[in-house]
Design a protein around this nucleic acid. Structure first.
Lengths: 107, 107
DNA sequence: GGGCTATTTCGCCAAATAGCGAAATAATGC
DNA sequence: GCATTATTTCGCTATTTGGCGAAATAGCCC
């Protein structure tokens, strides 16, 4: 396989990780694990200003982790990569030394 | 559960993602998936200077993703969270639309 | 169209990150 | 102890990130 293509793929995967590498964005993902939410609910959940939350959402969306849909005045966000949640559970399990079987992949 | 404790846990998980959110570090993890490597091999693999690679390794180690062991003059690094590799495969599968069952968790 | 509400974009500043090369550290062999 | 080799730490600079509030945009209702 072409090395440049591999570099590009790696960069895209790195972008996914980078997007998840911030507590506020992780909390957004956690919240969305419970189903779609409008921005107002996410602002409540993470406790930052609207503009800040909006930019965090844009980062997650650019990485392909979430998706949005406008309905009326509100924009609703939802997880497109639910395996992220399985993986965070796996990380927690690794930290606590518990044995856990990872759930199904998103693919 | 205590909210501050939750915040701390979230920060730690975010640190894991953040550590993985750089192509050079992702390439290091990929390389280590094939077994332990000394720093010189990793420098070859990622194509940056020694000091830069060393700092990337420190970031990965601080996040608990890799571990090191000094033997003689060389320092060998190895993966402590191999599920990271399963997860990146899952991400790749999600991108390409393939169905994949995620392998066992690290815990 | 005008006013209201939900959300995003912009411009700013402070802090963190990523690269480099030089200097410091550590283990080995003479 | 001194030279050599492998690696890390330090000091520097350029770039990116993350917060904010103000302004811009978009949909709805009158």
């Amino acid at each position: 396989m072409n090395a440049l293509l591999k570099d590009l793929q790696r960069q895209q995967r790195a972008d996914v990780f980078k997007a998840l590498g911030h507590p506020a964005r992780l909390q957004i993902v956690e919240t969305l694990a419970g189903g779609e939410r409008c921005v107002c609910e996410l602002v409540d959940a993470v406790g930052f200003g609207w503009s800040t939350v909006s930019r965090h959402l844009a980062v997650l969306k650019a990485a392909g982790i979430i998706d949005d849909e406008k309905r009326g005045l509100q924009v609703f966000y939802r997880l497109t990569l639910p395996c992220v949640v399985s993986f965070t559970e796996c990380l927690e399990a690794a930290r606590s030394g518990k044995q856990v079987v990872m759930r199904r992949c998103c693919g």
